[in-house]
């Protein structure tokens, strides 16, 4: 399942949980899922500070497992701390939000392509 606040992603894919809120809210929803036993497929954060300023973020999670994955819980918690550390001081970059939409979608698709042909 893809948890996203990016309308482009929501339009294009099924199995999307549309959050209609901020990136922070999206991360927190992901965290709640991880606490229920779902696993992260993609990392909650992007690979640069500039992408942290994106108003959009899409994260892939896996099916619910019997046990909580502590490593993934740690990763999502750390990611939220890291995200807040930057964004408490800064605003998301709204002027170029359409570009962020596109790049978020493309990065998501790169992650999805890595996951093709797997069953676990």
């Amino acid at each position: 399942m893809i948890i996203t606040n990016n309308p482009l992603v929501a339009e294009k894919y099924e199995n999307v949980l549309w959050t209609d809120g901020s990136v922070e809210k999206t991360l927190i929803i992901v965290r709640d899922f991880i606490h229920q036993g779902y696993e992260l497929v993609s990392h909650p954060l992007a690979a640069s500070l500039r992408m942290l300023f994106s108003p959009y973020r899409s994260i892939i999670i896996n099916n619910k497992k019997e046990k909580l994955n502590f490593e993934h819980a740690q990763i999502i918690e750390d990611s939220i701390i890291k995200y807040k550390k930057h964004m408490d001081l800064r605003k998301t970059d709204e002027k170029t939000r359409d570009d962020y939409k596109k790049i978020d979608l493309l990065l998501l698709e790169a992650a999805l392509s890595e996951e093709k042909g797997k069953w676990y």
Binding site: E39, L40, V41, S42, I60, A110, A111, E114, K118
Partner: peptide, 9 residues
């Protein structure tokens, strides 16, 4: 390579 997916990592 630095992947976005945890499996890749």
């Amino acid at each position: 390579p630095e992947h976005t997916t945890l499996a890749g990592k």
